[in-house]
Design a protein around this nucleic acid. Structure first.
Lengths: 213, 213
DNA sequence: CCCGAATGTGTACATCGTACACAACGGGTG
DNA sequence: CACCCGTTGTGTACGATGTACACATTCGGG
């Protein structure tokens, strides 16, 4: 009994889609326990394969984690895009630009709240986070979270809502604020806030950013 | 030759100050490699003691890491206090309050830049970060970084620089912004910035916070 | 002086990442 | 169609880590 525990123990010698299977397994591990939970042996176990098989597709654990991280970042981008897509249509271009800007931050914070493990994994990045611009982190629109923010800021400038001389570097200021709040919400003193309180805190923060940019 | 490799291999059976020795060793590990580098066996090795000796003073690795984290947070507080102490004396109370507020952020960012490993360890906090208010995280003035920020904000209110109705929750907005920038500077896309560029970015961010609070 | 509580040691085990040698597959060339 | 070799998975092995359990040593009071 219990011959095949959960997994059907693939009959073929070849797996066929191991790399993807490992990333998917890693994604699930990350969802539940954040980046440190993305464990090579657990992923291979889930895929029904020997631990070392992973090394045919990833140089080491860090490489797998990186792939998982990129996928998590793409999910962040998709959440942002969804937030923007859900916006009510507006005739006023300035109001529309402002709403799109706020949706970027709101989507970011929503994702952090709903999927803290994946969020931490997305922005974990040991060593170098320059991958924030890699295509593999893009969402449906082909834009990474960072690029979505930049586009929203450009929209503010175009509609005269943000002085052009304040534009350079603005993404870092806005990102800092929102990212910092996400950190406080996830495992900071703000953890345990009710969802609507979280939403309020996010709106207050974005208010501050809009005023201060 | 090489009988005692580095450590003099304590003659006495009792160590006498193991708990502190472990925290100190952990602090050094954290400085070099961040929280994940705080390894029980390495700390005991450094203290010249068997691995299990640590369990007489800490429930597990997490407990040691927590102690190290609190000490790192105290160092953050001291850096903030030093930044405030270095301020030129001013007659104008409003200007003084503002300068003290800015010094809180500047000290925070300075520490993040100068001691990234310790900084990450200070605000690592797996599970619950409510310890940010524990006395063990206080600096020379007896205040934790969080309390120093609160006091600076109170000063802004007293001098009329910040409307009282904006005060509630303001520490979270300010902290979010500064903490987020620290994250981007340490292992985000802003890593590798020159120290003076870092300083400029910090001042810009604090400008934004002042305008937006 | 002597005995119990506090502190450190020794041994042991599960889990992890990963190196190295071997095995099974399967597609291209003859 | 047969063979052969590169790709992909397996097996075995090693060192490191956290930690449990039993034992040894020491110190401070009675």
């Amino acid at each position: 009994m219990a011959a095949d525990a959960g997994k059907p123990k693939r009959g073929t010698y070849r797996h066929g889609d191991l790399r993807n299977a490992l990333v998917r397994a890693g994604l699930e591990l990350a969802r539940q326990g954040g980046p440190e939970a993305v464990v090579l042996r657990a992923a291979t176990r889930e895929a029904g394969v020997a631990p070392n098989a992973a090394y045919r597709h990833f140089a080491d654990r860090a490489a797998l984690l990186h792939a998982v991280s990129q996928e998590a970042m793409a999910q962040v981008a998709r959440t942002m895009e969804a937030e923007q897509a859900a916006l009510p249509p507006t005739a006023d271009p300035a109001a529309a630009a402002r709403a799109r800007f706020r949706a970027v931050g709101t989507g970011y914070l929503r994702f952090a709240q709903e999927e803290p493990g994946l969020f931490r994994t997305a922005f974990h990045v040991p060593g170098d986070m320059s991958h924030a611009a890699d295509d593999s982190a893009a969402g449906g629109s082909g834009k990474t979270p960072f690029e979505l923010l930049g586009a929203a800021l450009d929209g503010l400038v175009e509609t005269g809502r943000l002085p052009a001389d304040r534009r350079p570097g603005a993404e870092f200021l806005a990102w800092s604020a929102v990212h910092g709040l996400a950190a406080l919400l996830i495992d900071g003193p703000l953890r345990g806030l009710q969802p609507d309180q979280v939403h309020d805190a996010g709106q207050h923060l974005i208010d501050m950013v809009e005023r201060g940019l």
